[in-house]
């Protein structure tokens, strides 16, 4: 009897390679990857939703704030206009009353501080003209009343000048603007002289291509014409536009097109007449008396300083002025492109 030799029962176990491991773990890896991706996606979606909600809340707050701000400003504007043109001011009281004039000056101050892009120049000029008529009307008013009116007009002019210079400085700080200072003098023979600085501001030698022709200086009104040199060269029949400049000309609003995409504004910064030195010496700024006396001794009867500003049209116009954000965006892009 022979016994069958036991067969080799099994082949030696094959060592598992990476592929086998991958095969075994594959479904688990896929499941884990899907789970992770899903979590990431969910997290991202949650973040996007959260950001979107935040934007909505922010927009809502901004809109509400803008709306309430507009409402407050509208009420304030209405209240100030009513106060200026209300019954108390115009009918029940004497319009020569210095207290009422003080009130009107104060209302204009508040208006100009809060609504600097609203054109309130006519209100200023109307009161300035009214005060000027009172100041130099010897027959109707006492010396003391005339002096009070003079003080009120000086205050009104200070308010107007502060506002216009504030706008001029804001524009002058932006790239592409040029400011030129011009002095106008009238002597005893009523001869007008224009003295222009050699220099322009803003670190460049870019000039403003206009010729200033003075027409007259009269109680805070500077009458000039601006001859645009390029137009003059190309059109001999061209008549230069004339401007009456007062302390209430605001460059944001009162400006003219001068060149492609450029505008020019004029601001009156100083006006002195030596007539006031004799009439209202005690109401003038004490520190400036000697300066005024010196002008008078030099034969100067009227003295005015104006500033001419040339600036890109995109900065201006209360009706067509772009939003500040757009200006900033333009400036950022310009800087990037350089």
């Amino acid at each position: 009897m022979s016994e069958e030799q036991p067969q080799k029962s099994e082949e030696p176990s094959k060592k598992k390679d990476l592929w086998d491991i991958m095969q075994a773990l594959g479904p688990a890896i896929i499941a884990a990857t899907v789970a992770i991706m899903g979590s990431i996606y969910s997290y991202q979606q949650a973040q996007i939703t959260k950001a979107s909600e935040m934007r909505e809340v922010y927009t809502k707050i901004m809109t509400e704030r803008e709306s309430s701000d507009n409402s407050i400003r509208a009420n304030m504007f209405q209240m100030l206009i009513n106060a200026m043109f209300g019954k108390d001011v115009n009918t029940n009281s004497n319009p020569d009353n210095i207290r009422l004039i003080k009130q009107r000056v104060m209302f204009l101050d508040v208006l100009s501080r809060n609504f600097d892009t609203v054109d309130i120049k006519p209100l200023f000029e109307e009161l300035d003209g009214e005060l000027t008529r009172k100041i130099y009307n010897d027959k109707a008013y006492s010396d003391s009343a005339q002096k009070d009116y003079f003080t009120m007009r000086s205050e009104l002019r200070r308010i107007g000048r502060n506002l216009s210079v504030k706008q001029l400085n804001a524009l002058a700080s932006l790239p592409g603007t040029v400011v030129k200072n011009i002095v106008l003098i009238e002597d005893r023979e009523a001869k007008l002289q224009v003295l222009q600085d050699d220099n322009t501001s803003n670190g460049n030698y870019d000039n403003i291509p206009v010729e200033i022709k003075p027409q007259g200086l009269d109680d805070g009104n500077v009458d000039i014409s601006l001859e645009y040199l390029k137009t003059k060269a190309s059109d001999q029949g061209f008549k230069a536009p004339s401007f009456k400049v007062t302390f209430y000309d605001m460059p944001y609003i009162d400006n003219s097109v001068i060149d492609k995409d450029m505008r020019v504004g004029i601001v009156l910064t100083k006006y002195v007449t030596t007539k006031d030195l004799d009439m209202f010496r005690d109401r003038l700024d004490k520190r400036l008396i000697k300066d005024y006396e010196d002008l008078k001794a030099g034969g100067i009867v009227k003295y005015a300083e104006i500033r001419l500003i040339k600036f890109p049209a995109k900065y201006t116009g209360h009706r067509d002025r772009p939003y500040l954000q757009e200006i900033l965006q333009d400036l950022i892009e310009e800087k990037k492109s350089k």
Partner: peptide, 15 residues
């Protein structure tokens, strides 16, 4: 640079 100095303060920047 030529300029006119008026009464009070006169500011002129130069470059």
């Amino acid at each position: 640079r030529k300029l006119f100095v008026g009464p009070g303060e006169t500011r002129r920047d130069f470059s």
